[in-house]
């Protein structure tokens, strides 16, 4: 059950057991017996269906429950051929189908049952719940959240920065909002994909993506908002990162590796090491920045798409 024990997974799973209902997790296909069945018959049913207990119904009403332990005890004490009605547990703990799952978890903890019969609003048996059912349901729900996130990301990537073609030049524009870390990296992913589609060398595409990503995060972290514009021409790509303020006090200082004005929160997220701008500069063939406190910052990076010399790694 590592899914619900991990710190990060815990909060989600924890939330889920409060929002999901018993009926969302229970098995509806319930195997039942009657008081007139013999315990021997129940033993065969449990073996066949690979279950460890079954509710006992009389005229559609729940009157008891028989478990594997009852069968073992019957074998031990020699009453395996006798009626279920004489040996079943009659004091059955049940749960309503509209209860939140956390209630069921509490029941399992308190009573240590293997299964709990589930009743609908009319008091009729409508399902049965085991701890395994809860785990399976939580797993499904967690997977669903991941799938949703994947779908959202793919939709975002398809929608963002629709390319506008003008002659040989393609322009893509991406608004970037202050503090919007969720969308950091969308522009760079799109620009990288666009360059790859054009058959541009992967190292060049990577440099463009890194410069864009650093510029995106700069706008998100430091500014009140701005935009990234990429112009892909025949020979080069120009990435413009423009924001509306507050501007950089000392541009020269900001270009120094290690200098950072980022908050502790930003640093916890893995940014703000003070190498963003120097890194952009490293990726660029041509680099220009202008900024004034009180107004915005304008950064322009140009990268040649077909460098003459092959590039080596560090």
């Amino acid at each position: 059950m590592s899914v619900i024990n991990h710190t990060n997974g815990f909060s989600v799973a924890h939330e889920l057991i409060y929002t999901l209902k018993v009926r969302d997790a229970m098995s509806r296909d319930v195997v039942t017996v009657t008081p007139d069945n013999s315990l021997r018959e129940v033993q065969a049913i449990l073996r066949e269906r690979r279950i460890s207990g079954t509710p006992v119904l009389e005229d559609g009403r729940l009157v008891g429950i028989v478990s594997l332990e009852d069968i073992i005890s019957a074998l031990d004490h020699g009453h395996i051929e006798e009626r279920v009605g004489d040996w079943m547990t009659t004091n059955v703990v049940t749960i309503q189908d509209n209860m939140p799952l956390h209630r069921a978890v509490e029941y399992f903890r308190r009573y240590r049952f293997g299964r709990i019969p589930v009743l609908d609003a009319g008091g009729c048996l409508c399902g049965i719940l085991t701890q395994a059912d809860i785990v399976v349901r939580l797993m499904e729900e967690l997977n669903h959240i991941a799938e949703e996130a994947a779908r959202r990301e793919i939709a975002l990537l398809q929608r963002a920065g629709t390319p506008i073609t003008q002659g040989q030049e393609v322009t893509m524009e991406f608004p970037v909002n202050a503090g919007d870390f969720d969308n950091a990296g969308i522009a760079s992913a799109r620009i990288k994909a666009a360059l790859k589609e054009r058959g541009i060398d992967i190292k060049v595409a990577r440099r463009a993506a890194i410069a864009t990503y650093e510029a995106e995060t700069n706008i998100i972290i430091h500014s009140i908002g701005g935009a990234i514009t990429a112009r892909i021409g025949a020979e080069s790509i120009t990435i413009q990162a423009v924001d509306w303020g507050p501007g950089i006090e000392d541009v020269e200082m900001a270009l120094r590796p290690g200098f950072s004005t980022a908050s502790e929160l930003v640093r916890v997220m893995g940014f703000g090491a003070g190498i963003g701008l120097p890194n952009i500069q490293k990726c660029a063939d041509r680099f220009h920045i202008e900024s004034k406190p009180g107004s915005g910052t304008r950064l322009e990076v140009e990268i040649d798409l077909h460098p003459l010399v092959s590039e080596g790694g560090e």
Partner: peptide
């Protein structure tokens, strides 16, 4: 351990 959102992003 990654959150489900992170898993979804990696899948995407």
């Amino acid at each position: 351990h990654p959150t489900q959102e992170i898993i979804g992003l990696a899948q995407a």
